[in-house]
Nucleic acid binder design. Structure first.
Lengths: 193, 193
DNA sequence: CGTCTATTTGAATGTACTCAAAAGCGGTGG
DNA sequence: CCACCGCTTTTGAGTACATTCAAATAGACG
């Protein structure tokens, strides 16, 4: 149950068996079925979710009622509505299963406690947030400086598995284009290989 | 010299006089003149910079030789090339003075030492990176879901002072549009007030 | 097998872009 | 102190890319 998340921690910090024991004891396993919500817009987010198996997406709905995919989380990724989590205000974010998914929930209250009991956990999240910040900055830069077809190529290069498992309609939304545009991009690219 | 940065810390953590004494003792003040570089693409970034007075921008140059503004930092903001800082690989980022600017440099080696001596400093950066991550996510979402004129309105609403101090050419780049487009957006908006 | 959703295709539209050039503005040196 | 130079901003015309709307096709799930 906890092998994957232990590796996820160990990629950034050294953690002892006893420390990990404490850490894993506060995790709450949960199944999120395909098309079911783990979090709904308007709710106050209380947890961060680690994807142990399966796939989730987060999205929000704009004024015109259009969905915009914020994040796609396969195994070994963390997902949450951090804005709502930190402010404890109702958020805009929905988190939904793309497949039947097994998550480990870390509630914010427990996370704060862990910072006190196991300082190395605070280091872990410091590094995680910093890296998430860096890669999101890169995503902004790409979305502002590169045309859609290049962004798509870059995505399938970095995450070839996404295309197999995630409906194109969500990938299009993640890239900030319409499904029609993505379809045309793919047609064009299959022609020139 | 250190009043502003102390307030910056205290917005996220409680820090004692003696702790702040240690913290401030490793800061390196520096002047960055208008149009001069604090960091150049290709260099390995060794520090985070706190803007005490003045204004900096960071940018990178794409394959076609076009500049893209990543961040604009007024007083009380931190700026760096975190990707290069964390990997200690040569980065793509330039950091340049928009005005004559007074910065406080925190070198990464010192920052790591501070984490050990003053754990609360690790908490500070954990919070800072998390918030930077959240606001960058919001920026991606806007850049993918909103037209340029709305993004511009949102920017001047949040940072009215930017328009006074930062050339429009840099604001356009930050918004991901051309200076010509920004000029037309501004003309249109001045018409309908 | 039928229904619902995802994907593709087509045609018309619109937003932002490129290229080119003029006008405005600020800083510097004579 | 003023004139000049360079950079920023504006304006115009034509173009490209992605969008919208509509509809047909294909696939997946129960």
């Amino acid at each position: 149950m906890f092998e994957l998340i232990r590796k996820n921690l160990e990629a950034k910090i050294d953690i002892s068996d006893s420390e990990f024991e404490i850490f894993s004891s506060v995790l709450k396993p949960k199944i999120v079925k395909r098309k079911k919500d783990l979090l709904r817009g308007g709710e106050i987010c209380k947890f961060s979710a680690f994807v142990n198996k399966g796939c989730l997406r987060s999205y929000f709905i704009d004024d015109k009622g259009v969905e915009h995919v914020v994040q796609i989380a396969l195994e070994n990724y963390w997902i949450s509505d951090l804005h709502s989590l930190f402010t404890q205000q109702p958020g805009q974010i929905y988190i939904e299963g793309i497949e039947d998914t097994e998550v480990l929930l870390l509630y914010q209250d427990d996370q704060e406690d862990l910072y006190l009991d196991i300082p190395i956990i605070e280091r872990f999240f410091r590094k995680m947030y910093a890296m998430a910040y860096v890669s999101t900055l890169e995503r902004v830069n790409r979305s502002l400086s590169e045309p859609a077809d290049v962004r798509y190529l870059n995505l399938i290069e970095k995450h070839p598995d996404l295309i197999q498992r995630v409906p194109l309609i969500h990938i299009a939304s993640f890239l900030g284009i319409t499904p029609e545009s993505l379809s045309r991009i793919r047609k064009q690219q299959s022609g020139k290989s």
